[in-house]
Design a binder for these strands. Sequence first.
DNA 1: CGTGAGCTTGACTAGGTTCAAACGGGGTGG
DNA 2: CCACCCCGTTTGAACCTAGTCAAGCTCACG
Lengths: 233, 233
Amino acid sequence: MGIDCNNCQARNSKLCSVFDGDSIAELFEIAIPVKVEKGSYLLHEEDSTKYVYNLSSGVSAVERLASDGRRQIMAFIYPGDFIGVSTGPAYSISDRALTDVTACKWHIRDIEALYVKYPELEQRVHEIATRVLAATMDQIFVLGRKNAIEKIAYFLLYIDKRQVKFDGHTDEFTLPMTRADIADYLGITVETVSRAFSLLKKKGFIELSQNWVVRLLDKDTLAEIADHFGPNS
Amino acid sequence: MGIDCNNCQARNSKLCSVFDGDSIAELFEIAIPVKVEKGSYLLHEEDSTKYVYNLSSGVSAVERLASDGRRQIMAFIYPGDFIGVSTGPAYSISDRALTDVTACKWHIRDIEALYVKYPELEQRVHEIATRVLAATMDQIFVLGRKNAIEKIAYFLLYIDKRQVKFDGHTDEFTLPMTRADIADYLGITVETVSRAFSLLKKKGFIELSQNWVVRLLDKDTLAEIADHFGPNS
DNA sequence: CGTGAGCTTGACTAGGTTCAAACGGGGTGG
DNA sequence: CCACCCCGTTTGAACCTAGTCAAGCTCACG
């Protein structure tokens, strides 16, 4: 097994942090290590909901695909994030690896079996679901009530916050997702994403190199834009 | 107390149905009955998250209001639905009564105290959160990827499904919310809602009387429209 | 060095917003 | 009892943001 919990990027995740240095072994013993390469899926909509996942490294996207090809990305998943919390027989979402990804996969029943010995675990799983719900509410507001530029500004700040843990604190990061992914996350088109990036670049709020490296030059203004951007801005 | 659990519209809700005829009294004893009139709020964004609610009668809307007046409705709450599941110190959403409303309110700690005696209760609360999450995912797709008419068709079918329990099975129901509420739920404007209603009426798929009574005349077609409505439809 | 996937940019279009006016029904006060 | 008003809704017309279509660019990779 190539997994060493104490060096895992997810070591401090809501789930794993329930266990201390010794007892973490118990969680690890029932874990099924998973490796998925860029572009492949960790799970599909139709899969039966037997497993939950905790991302160890890489980035993935929770998405739903309609029969006519329209796609919506529900969330981007970073190390320590949880996937697979679901009710009903099938996840109703897929999870696609945006980079090469490793994860721990558990049979739900195996996790539940640990609830007795570690009561806090159950509470944590519940907390995870609740946190996801809160994040989802934010996204509903963004999708329903923000215009394209507000969406992009919001997105950049969101990614900055998510990614700072891994990249350091330089306000500079490398986007793991394509413009199409960003578009499908924000409910707009690639062209609109591109135009918004160009505008923010021209105005001097961000810097782009090689398309995927973003540097935020003026976070305060970006925050204002994310909050409100209108004709008289 | 004016509450009789066994005649409550929420008697079969995920929460209350854990208890049988006798033991329901235990849940009721720690319940704080709440009455809120149309237009008032059951809870505000800033309220500290001490309580959870189960709607007994009426309809309410979970919403968020931005400083510049933009509003987004996250969900409509019907009898048996749950409100207040949250992490963090404050709900970050408000809940406004669309009609006169009654609800049971519990201190979270009182509910948690019952977990020991009724282990299924904890599981149910978790299940509720998960269900809400699934519904929210649907809404994200709708907001991000559906056009105005698809949204309205989806909305009508959604309300039909929610409301059929209380109105009977006639495919006819009375909307408890205004056009503005519908608009804020679907991320469009009142005018667009109104135009979409008119179109569906003209095409003979729905019937409207007194603005609030809707009759679905052709649910199959509505479902097709909700799924896909384009230039060549 | 050529190729192609992904990104940008431009011109045009269209769906939805905005602004404005008119409608309708329920409630109030004369 | 009726006139009036008000709020929510509908409808129309102009406008504008984002989508669509198309071309050209960039850069990683073979």
